[in-house]
Design a protein around this nucleic acid. Structure first.
Lengths: 330, 330
DNA sequence: TTGAAAGCGCTAACAG
DNA sequence: CTGTTAGCGCTTTCAA
């Protein structure tokens, strides 16, 4: 069995209370005893049992992160941000891949509350009433990142998807594009779907252009769906000179289709992405994209959790990273 | 305060022992009491405190995963595999990004043992004596994935890097390539460096070709290093018709450089990768690559952990995924 | 089939 | 400055 606090106490000839004070850096002992105890700890290899500590302190120094996918660069960056912030506060991070499955999500929610995590970060996925109710009943602090919830009860951190999408399209318009296709999430997606579609339309309208439904094709943010959507869009023969995709991955999918058809980028077709993950750097040509500060959003989400009840939602700024996939038509 | 087991016991008019038996599905109660207790649990929203359970059971149903990076597809796939296996056994996964930093690694090792994880999976990074000694002293079960250790004390799961590299190069040779460049990790890397270099050389020699040091350029497995290595290799003017890179990411880097120079792939230069992550599918042309079953390796690593002392290391099979980046010269 | 009670490893009054 | 002791929420003999 591992050495425990009482062993240390005995070996050092002091009480458990004293050892506890020392390892927790509380006041109440002489420098002399401190050194002695520390030496015993060192020699014995004592590692306090965090389960016992958590039990009495009602704090596990642990959080959970729920996300719908582990395989996108978006997730990776988010996790990195969260992990970095958590590490700096000595807290452990449980990762939970929900696979977009309601049942898995509920089971993870339950597991995390049983493990008495100090908070839960819910990422990229719409927070349904079911989830929200569970969290409220279990009284687990939660923060949302890159999403929001029905009733706005939980603090969130995200970019303004409407403005971001609008700015991206305006960027293309400024460069002389008039016929702009859009590959995005479904309109019934209240976060990455509808607002971005509305932003796209607003940008066109503000420039006196006419947004048509046929200019839009739908995907699920992953590569393959970008390939398919580009094929569909191009097949409609609308004469687009540029296409804006709602994720870098879908933009790469679009580019892949264009390459395969021998349509040169950006000479014959400009492509713009959304996110600015490393996908945008590894593509050829490199991808001009709407940048979300994903890693910073992850860090911020952790902070929201730590802020407790007085946490305030934050809208992070977006920006445009210009690379080589958009042609200047002017 | 959350409702606890003793609350449930009181409300159901039974003892805590009985409730405990019921939630743990142990024998020793009538169907009638079971139903009553279950109803109370349901109505009260009781969630057993896993910290308390862990304290008495000496089992936390939790593992830790240490990896040097979170931002590669390799990591993502590995985590997915581990998480899937863990989820199926109701165990939580702490992710720990060491950033290839010894100090962070040691701190995480310490955090994980304090949290009394049931095991630690150590990925992609050479297990130094320091780490190994810590694990042995703390008596935490550990398993290695995509790596191994100095003293071979811990079970591991990996592919045979030597054979894999050799097979990849033989594949190129079979397609008529004679001048083959190699972009790989440093020779002092005992896993992804040296063995792959030796495999490369062996393949050449076995075909009567002469492996030269100048045919090799070094990278760190990431995209940018692939770009640089390709530039260097090409600059040497050795007339390569193919280049083999020790990671898909580096292969994409190489392709990016070739694209930029107007060198067509695979017509003027064939490119082959290693891993078969989604990077190989999103590139254009799609990448022919040496496939490691990364996700399965993750699952297997978890199983090794659960197998306890009688876990046996396993070499996973590799294969070659043919796509469009290698030209047939025959 | 059930309950009383000791104990898992630690913290925090409280007393000295 | 230091020790005693009563929990934290659960499991598990042992006895009934």
């Amino acid at each position: 069995m591992a050495v425990k606090l009482s062993d240390v106490a005995r070996m050092a000839g002091v009480s458990t209370a004293t050892v506890s004070r020392i390892i927790n850096k509380l006041p109440g002992y002489s420098e002399e005893t401190r050194e002695k105890v520390l030496r015993v700890i060192e020699e014995s290899g004592f590692q306090p049992n965090a389960l016992a500590q958590g039990l009495v302190n009602r704090k596990s120094n642990t959080i959970g992160v729920l996300l719908p996918s582990l395989s996108t660069h978006f997730s990776s960056l988010l996790i990195r941000g969260i992990e970095r912030a958590a590490y700096s506060q000595s807290t452990g991070v449980f990762i939970c891949n929900t696979d977009n499955d309601g049942e898995r999500t509920m089971e993870y929610l339950s597991m995390l509350t049983q493990k008495r995590v100090d908070g839960i970060i819910f990422a990229s996925e719409w927070l349904t009433d079911d989830y929200a109710n569970f969290l409220k009943k279990a009284k687990v602090p939660a923060a949302l990142v890159a999403t929001a919830s029905e009733d706005n009860h939980f603090p969130y951190v995200k970019v303004d998807d409407y403005s971001a999408s609008r700015d991206a399209v305006k960027y293309l318009i400024q460069r002389g594009h008039r016929k702009i296709g859009f590959i995005t999430g479904r309109a019934d997606d209240p976060i990455a779907g509808r607002p971005r579609i509305e932003g796209y339309r607003a940008a066109l309208r503000e420039s006196g252009l006419d947004p048509r439904d046929a200019d839009i094709a739908f995907g699920n943010f992953h590569f393959e769906s970008g390939v398919d959507a580009m094929a569909e869009l191009y097949g409609r023969g609308l004469g687009h000179t540029a296409v804006f995709a709602s994720s870098d991955e879908m933009a790469l999918g679009a580019m892949s289709w264009l390459h395969a058809k021998g349509i040169s980028i950006p000479e014959e077709m400009s492509v713009m992405g959304y996110d600015d993950t490393i996908d945008a750097r590894i593509s050829y040509p490199t991808l001009t994209t709407l940048r979300q500060p994903i890693e910073a959003m992850g860090e911020k989400a952790f902070e929201l959790l730590m802020d407790g009840p007085n946490a305030r939602s934050v809208i992070m700024g977006h920006s445009i990273t210009s690379r080589d996939s958009v042609r200047d038509l002017i």
